[in-house]
Amino acid sequence: MTPLRIYTWVLIVALYVPIGLMVALSFNNSKLPYVWGGFTLRWYEALFGWGQAWQALLNSAVIALAVSFTATLLGIFMAYVLRQDKYIAVSQVAVVMPEVSEALAFAAVLWLVKTYAGIDLFGPVGVFLAHLAYTLPMAHVLLAPYVAYVSRSAVEAARILGASELRTMFSVVMPILMPAFVATFLIVFANSFDTYIKTAFTTSPGFVTAPILLWNYAARGRGDPTIYALATFMLIPSLVAAAIYFRAVKRYG
């Protein structure tokens, strides 16, 4: 093996070791992370009886599904409309903005709306909007190269044959873009599902998502390994998403 190859594999292993460690701790029959007390499922039993955790997971999943659906749909429109526009960067540059600044800005807007219009959007709506604002540029960046790949002539052929712009979008552009659509949906889902910062700034005490819950326990050091069980459980949607993604990639070549 060449040094570069060794380096690459060391890096990959290093990425997965902490995750493996966490999974191991979720089966550790000890409250102390540095003591191995043997194999147990008791933390999972505790997890299944922990109603707050399930509510948080459900909240995260609902928000992530709504966000990924909306962001993918709007992203594809954006990518199509801006495909030859020199101002495309205005949308795409938002991807590299500091997440925490964006979150703070969003919270400020929600405060203004609350103060001046009397509408309190903190909670699910605020979280949804904040996640959407954060993932939409991401969806745009992911989709733009694929939209450019749809040949201009296929669109023109549809127009000549009598399809309206909207019809062309739904009957020609979107089906061709299906693989990119799936990939974007999954990546946005993953991002929305586990973002802490965006949610922390825009939610209300009554609306807790899984990352918020984990943070509340882990950061304050009051969690027992049940939170490892929860975090391990949260790996499942990611693995499913990855499986779907690779299947789609393989199928569409």
């Binding site: 002539s153 296929a154 023109e156 052929a157 127009r159 000549i160 399809a163 089906p175």
Partner: peptide, 20 residues
């Protein structure tokens, strides 16, 4: 617009719809 000119066009890259 193109669809009201009673024309059809054959493109250099054919522009067939790959999903159909």
């Amino acid at each position: 617009p193109p669809d009201r000119r009673k024309i059809s066009m054959l493109f250099q890259d054919l522009a067939l719809f790959p999903h159909l």
